[in-house]
Amino acid sequence: MRPSAVRLLNILVPIKRAVDYAVKIRVNPEQTGIDLNVKHSMNPFDEIAVEEAVRIRERLKDAVKSIKVVTIGPPKSAETLRTALAMESAPAPEPLGVAKTLKALIERQKEGVDVVILGKQAIDDDAGQTGQMLAGLMGWSQATFASKVEVDPEQKVANITREIDGGLEELRCKFPVIITTDLRQVHLFNLGLFQEPRYASLPNIMKAKKKPVEKLTAVELGVDLTPRLETIKVTEPPKRVGGGKVANVDELLAKLKEAGVTGKRA
């Protein structure tokens, strides 16, 4: 007889509202940033993080006590979030500021936090730092670029497969642990092994509207979100112009030779 599962695990998923990945971005005329008057959605890596948290709950059922989602950014960020915590600041802070805010939020959680799952990077700033910074500030174990996560709530460990340059690495991380998600999951979704990040159904969207959203400010949390790095300008990358077409392989080879590209044994 198995004893009934104890509610053990508290999961926190920080997410970011970013310009939708399909939007062709434009640098603004002042060169201070990009035109943000475009479609925004949840950072795709964070969707995977949310999906992973939900899947952990599906596998472990009652062992998961809570999943809380948090976003830190301008008031509109709350749209990205239909559950749990929203924190207002404008504009979106730097990774170190976000990590400090998350630390302050974790310290407010009476029941503690066992697992934090984040996307490996946001597709706007492409920094890829927040998870590691949070792990450093907390002194917790970290598993970046995770493509497979197995949580054992009783042993309080997570076995994680991570993407490294040239292959894969498996780690065993003690709780509390910070995990950042890679895209391998998506690859597996498409092979039918996992489900794709799911769309919220209308009933769930209605239910989500009733879930509590706690709004906090940087002042309430005692964190300073002043940027430390100064963005001097944002510019368009140089445009490439096509060099025209060739008629056959020989002409192509001639062009390659001209550019200094020859066969390995040539």
Binding site: I25, I34, D125, L229, I232, V234, P237
Partner: peptide
Amino acid sequence: IYAGNAISTVR
């Protein structure tokens, strides 16, 4: 930044 669609200069 933005998947290589913009260049950011930071100090």
